[in-house]
Design a protein around this nucleic acid. Sequence first.
DNA 1: TATATTCTATCTATCACTAGGTAGGTAGAA
DNA 2: TTCTACCTACCTAGTGATAGATAGAATATA
Lengths: 187, 187
Amino acid sequence: MTVERNDTKNKILDIAEGFIVKGGYNAFSFRDIADAVGIKSASVHYHYPTKGDLVSAVMGRYTRDFSELLPNPNDDKFDPKMLLDGFIKGFKDKVVDQRDMSLCTMLTSNKAILPESVGAELAAFYQLILDWLSQVFVRLDPINKDSGLILASQLLACLHGASILVQGTNQSEFFDHALSEWRSRYL
Amino acid sequence: MTVERNDTKNKILDIAEGFIVKGGYNAFSFRDIADAVGIKSASVHYHYPTKGDLVSAVMGRYTRDFSELLPNPNDDKFDPKMLLDGFIKGFKDKVVDQRDMSLCTMLTSNKAILPESVGAELAAFYQLILDWLSQVFVRLDPINKDSGLILASQLLACLHGASILVQGTNQSEFFDHALSEWRSRYL
DNA sequence: TATATTCTATCTATCACTAGGTAGGTAGAA
DNA sequence: TTCTACCTACCTAGTGATAGATAGAATATA
């Protein structure tokens, strides 16, 4: 496990993630990635034999990074409102500042045509996020786990939808508009 | 203008819409459409010279159909709550019953890689929908047009996001969960 | 009315190009 | 010497798109 090995492998993932976020599963090729990395397409296949392998590696890393980034929702030293606010801010960064859709939104819209391995990684991501948000909501309000999940799905839908709206209208104000009710209720 | 002529043209649009809704702009080919219609791909090009022409025709028809379907939001014989409920129901039909994403959600997620002509059709659709919803909200509450637009964008984001959530988790309950707050507030 | 012309909707065949993927080779590091 | 990370060269199967032909319907003209 030299440093170089991981560098190329990660660079491929970085660039693939950028392409996916821009146009989805079918909007890039091994050659696109090879050109961007500065190697040949056969070498990309060396690291990730099939496109499914590549994209599920991208999604897997995304989930792993997320799970490391998210604080323990039950740790008393974190205020739940702050956790929620941080989550929303992270999303907004992607959608408004970088004018990208989230990897998750993008791949979900492609779900019907994805290899099964990518679908599994996506499901794991939703599990992680919904679970985390549920726990935050349970701490925020004296509610049970089921109600926490409902609130979690409301917020997550709102965020996904806001990013669609920003992308579709080219007006980033819509992100804050779409979330204003949410903010005034919980933050 | 024989009947037959329009039949093929519309059949192509029907089938193209189905493919787009399933996998987006890059997930189908002229041959896929030709096979489904029962003609050759060259004949599809005869009706719609380029892929951009084809997809913007699909989106254009979608917008036209929508604008004919939506009742006049200022007509006193329609209760605004009923208008809103009908709109949400229509969306739910697509997302939950047919397990599809809306054409609009799908193409928006592909926006960065779409030909400019399709982007223009998409923008026209957002204009139509946001305008219609705004007017309904203005009738529902004694608010100004700006507040109406904000509520419109909140609902539209919620609907888009709910469809993403359903697609991503494979659990259609999330549609109603994501909209429950909305429903209890306005319906 | 009969003939000539044009148009429509399709075909076959092909273009240049790109897709994902593979076989086999090679320089250098372990 | 074996392994890693790359290469060149290639394959098959498509991609969007075009050229040129044709049967039949519609239209214009003699």
